[in-house]
Structure formats: C-alpha cells, structure tokens
C-alpha cells in the first residue's frame, strides 16, 4: 500500500469509514464497547466522541512520525501513543462530566485496546501522509459514533422510553428491560446488521435487473 500513491480524494476517504467500511456495521470491529456502553444515546455519543478523538490524534501523530519509527518497535510505539491519548481523554471527560465518566466506566481505558484504532494506525496512518490519515481517522470515528448511536438510540427508546433523556411515550410506557441488558445489545445489533444486509441485497437486485 505504501508504494501506491493516494488515489482517493479526501471526501472518499471520509466516506469510507462512515459508510463503506463502517467499523460497527460492516467490519464488526470494536464490539466490546459497542455492546457494553450503548444503553443510552448519551453514553453512545460520549464513547463515540472519545474514540474519535483518540483515533484522530493517534493516526495524525503516527503518520507524522512514520518515517522515524523503526518497524521492529512500531507496535510498542503505537500503543504508547494510543495509550497517551486515551489517558488525555480520560482526564478531559472527568473534567467535563463526572456523570458521563461514571457511565462509561472502564470502557474509556479500554479504548487503548480497541482494534479499530490499532487497525487504522497499522493499515493506514503508518503508510500515508498526515492529512490523509487524519481524514481517514475522522471518517472511521464518525462511522463508529453513528454505529454506537444507532445501537444506543434504539436501546434507550425501548429500554427506557426516552431518547437523550427526553421522555417519548409518557408515564404509562412499560420499559423493555431486556433492551438495557447485554442481550438487548446483541439483539439490536443483530437487527441493524439484518437491515444493512437487506439494503445491500436490494441494491444488488436493482443492479442485476
């Protein structure tokens, strides 16, 4: 890949992560936080933004340093850089909202081992210039945030009868508790994957006709 010049425009690069290679719905990466913290849309948004911040900062810095990092110590270097930005985001979230920090719990620290980030760094940022790495990371971050919001939104609507804390169905609504439990995460993810598979099949059928 390093020998190939960058062909895609920045917009294509951005859209790749958001749609074509969406980390949650297409590549099925980062499933641990995707299932664990998406009990509400607010948590999903917080986790998505935190991961996007780490993705953009890590990919940009690693891309800038890519010529100086020897191949033999690249993983150690990447992990140190990723862990640094995760620590920063950890402090920043504590400074902004302790309620969000409590809700996201250990999953903020676990961003260090999120496979989306190391995957992006290894397959893209380490081989491309900073602007391209940053745009690609931004696209992946937005795609991941959309994925989490799609899960968190549905789970909060049915599991608590509200969205972003705003009540939708009134007091008579009986929450589906299963939606905020771990099985609810798998259930909603399965339904979204089914929906995207159906979309893809329909598109294929149209092109075939």
């Amino acid at each position: 890949m390093s020998s190939q010049p960058l062909q895609a425009s920045n917009m294509e690069e951005l859209l790749e992560g958001i749609w074509k290679q969406n980390p949650v719905f297409v590549m099925a990466l980062g499933m641990c936080p995707a299932l664990a913290v998406t009990v509400s849309a607010f948590n999903a948004l917080g986790m998505g933004l935190a991961t996007t911040f780490v993705l953009i900062c890590s990919c940009t810095l690693i891309s800038m340093l890519r010529r100086f990092i020897p191949r033999e110590v690249r993983i150690a270097t990447y992990i140190v850089i990723i862990a640094t930005f995760v620590t920063l985001v950890d402090y920043i979230i504590q400074a902004v909202s302790l309620a969000l920090y409590e809700a996201l719990g250990a999953f903020i620290q676990l961003i260090v081992v999120n496979c989306i980030i190391l995957g992006r760094v290894e397959s893209h940022a380490a081989k491309n210039p900073p602007l391209s790495a940053m745009v690609n990371a931004l696209g992946m971050g937005i795609g991941f945030t959309i994925g989490l919001l799609a899960l968190g939104g549905v789970r909060e609507i049915f599991g608590a009868g509200q969205l972003f804390g705003i009540s939708l169905f009134g007091q008579n609504f009986q929450p589906w508790v299963v939606m905020v439990l771990p099985p609810g995460g798998f259930f909603v993810l399965g339904l979204w994957l089914l929906f995207f598979a159906w979309l893809a099949k329909r598109k294929e059928a149209r092109h075939g006709a």
Binding site: P70, V73, T77, V80, T84, L88, I92, V96
Partner: peptide, 26 residues
C-alpha cells in the same frame, strides 16, 4: 530503536503531565 522509544515516551509523558495539570482543578 531505543532512541525512538525514548523520544516517543518522553513526548507522551510530557503531554500526559501537561493535560493532567490543566484538568486537575476542574
């Protein structure tokens, strides 16, 4: 290899301490 790791860890250490100092009061 050692020089790269030392530089990167020093840079990262500096960043962490700076942000910790800034966010500590909040």
């Amino acid at each position: 290899m050692v020089r790269t790791l030392m530089l990167v860890t020093s840079l990262c250490g500096g960043l962490i301490v700076a942000v910790w100092q800034i966010t500590l009061p909040a």
